[in-house]
Design a protein around this nucleic acid. Structure first.
Length: 420
RNA sequence: GUGGACGUGGCGAAGCGGUUAACGCACCGGAUUGUGGCUCCGGCAUACGUGGGUUCGAUCCCCAUCGUUCACCCCA
């Protein structure tokens, strides 16, 4: 058993070689798709001044109120491990004055995020997200592009068990007006709502609409939806987004009750939901955040983006696919018998590797048969056998592991003989 | 933070008051000398999360604790 003192912290994971291949695949695909859409990578620190997140994510959110890994550094400053990526990217955008350059700025990021939450399927304390941001455009095409990029990424990954939920949460103006309507509508039944909704009533009434308990109450179902009370500008923008998505043949589902948890969202909100996952089924979530850049001290520029959870994405990949992506194979396995052969063997390995082949040999003192077994284990098509006989003749025996044919080759000819 | 379930060798998994604590996988070796993937034979660790308690006796019962897991909340 694991010695408790040395166990990894709850909610973290060791990604072992059997998984790493799949991770590399998912990450490489994310980078590749982003580059194609002309998003460029930014790497920001994994920790920031706490204020960046309090301000950027919103201090009424659960993330800020109870999920941040915050610590005081030796200089007495309050630092926080990033709980999400957008705030840091926007901070960098402002700090490096990228608003003075070509707009909109299109960025993507990939890396670990930290949230102090109780572990659950699809939820970790250290998890990995990749995300994209378009800063400096309010064009509905930007919203559509970001959504279509996410859709494209999932498709190219081979993920198809998902649906896209879409909504508009309006701007501060129409949201305030709607909130008044909503509260007036729900006030008569406030006392009948569940405990959670009682607090939501004051804190975030939009959430009452998708409550699992109260969501089906007639009074709640008949409540005014924000999407039906958008101001003219927001309505036009939303119509634009839907129009472009239609043109792009991205299928979506309008979900008027979907609101997102981070304070900075305005107008477009969307989620890609895995249909075969557990309770934590959002694999990509995002939307527009028109006030955020200004809130973090920059100019008043709009933005749109999304973030996707890599762990959740990996969960949707078939197990055999993950295994195949992480398969442990070799191009050749070197079998050595006898002390004298070792010197020649290490030289042969060096040359084969320099040539670009993936080669290994036994260092565990295995016998001849066991070494052949190793060659099988790693599915090596060729075994390079070097015994004292070969060493004396400055040659190696190449054994085709499938046909079982063997031939003696001098080391000079080993490479040019293209062996493989 | 709240609630339920669980915690046996590297992994999976029986046992549920007194057993040498099964079995499967994996791993190692052998089945005539330097030739594998199948089969057969043998070996392997000394494993009952931790700390208390009940008992003549606890892996099996009780409590606590740590951890895992699922769900709520919320989110990727």
């Amino acid at each position: 058993m694991v010695v408790a003192d040395y166990a990894r912290p709850p909610g973290t994971a060791d990604i072992l070689p059997e998984q790493a291949g799949a991770w590399q695949f998912v990450e490489a695909k994310a980078r590749e798709v982003c580059e194609r859409y002309h998003f460029r990578e930014v790497r920001t620190p994994v920790f920031e001044h706490t204020e960046v997140f309090e301000r950027g994510v919103g201090d009424t959110t659960d993330i800020v109120q109870k999920e941040m890994y915050t610590f005081t550094d030796r200089g007495g400053r309050s630092m926080t491990l990033r709980p999400e990526g957008t705030a840091g990217v926007v901070r960098a955008f402002n700090e490096e004055k990228l608003y003075g350059g070509n707009l909109p700025g299109k960025f993507f990021y990939l890396g670990p995020m930290f949230r102090y939450e109780k572990k659950q399927a699809g939820r970790y304390r250290q998890f990995h997200q990749y995300g994209v941001e378009v800063i400096g455009s309010d064009d509905a095409r930007a919203d559509a592009e970001v959504i279509e990029l996410a859709d494209c990424y999932l498709k190219e990954l081979g993920v198809d068990k998902y649906r896209l939920e879409l909504n508009s949460v309006g701007c501060p103006t129409c949201r305030a007006a709607h909130k008044a309507l909503l509260l007036a509508h729900l006030a008569p039944v406030k006392e009948e709502l569940c405990a959670d909704c009682q607090t939501r009533f004051d804190k975030n009434p939009l959430r009452i609409l998708d409550c699992k308990i109260d969501g089906k109450r007639p009074e709640v179902m008949s409540a005014p939806m924000i999407v039906d009370h958008l101001c003219a500008d927001c309505a036009a923008h939303f119509a634009g987004v839907k129009g472009y998505l239609d043109a792009l043949r991205v299928t979506y589902e309008l979900v008027p009750t979907m609101v997102r948890g981070l304070d900075y969202y305005t107008r477009t909100a969307f989620e890609f939901v895995g249909t075969e996952l557990g309770a934590q089924s959002t694999i990509i979530g995002g939307g527009r955040y028109n006030g955020l850049v200004g809130m973090l001290g920059g100019p008043d520029l709009p933005g749109v983006g999304f973030a996707g959870g890599l762990e959740r994405l990996l969960m949707t990949l078939a197990e055999d696919k993950v295994a195949a992506l992480s398969a442990d194979t070799l191009d050749a396995y070197v079998i050595v018998m006898g002390e004298a052969a070792n010197r020649l063997a290490v030289q042969v390995m060096q040359r084969l590797r320099a040539y670009g082949l993936k080669v290994d040999a036994d260092y565990a003192g295995r016998g001849f048969k066991a070494q052949l077994k190793q060659a099988d284990r790693f599915s090596a098509p060729v075994a390079v056998i070097i015994g004292d006989d070969e060493a004396a003749a400055k040659s190696v025996t190449l054994r085709d592991m499938v046909s079982k044919e063997q031939r003696l080759v001098t080391i000079e000819h080993l490479l040019e003989d293209k062996d493989r």
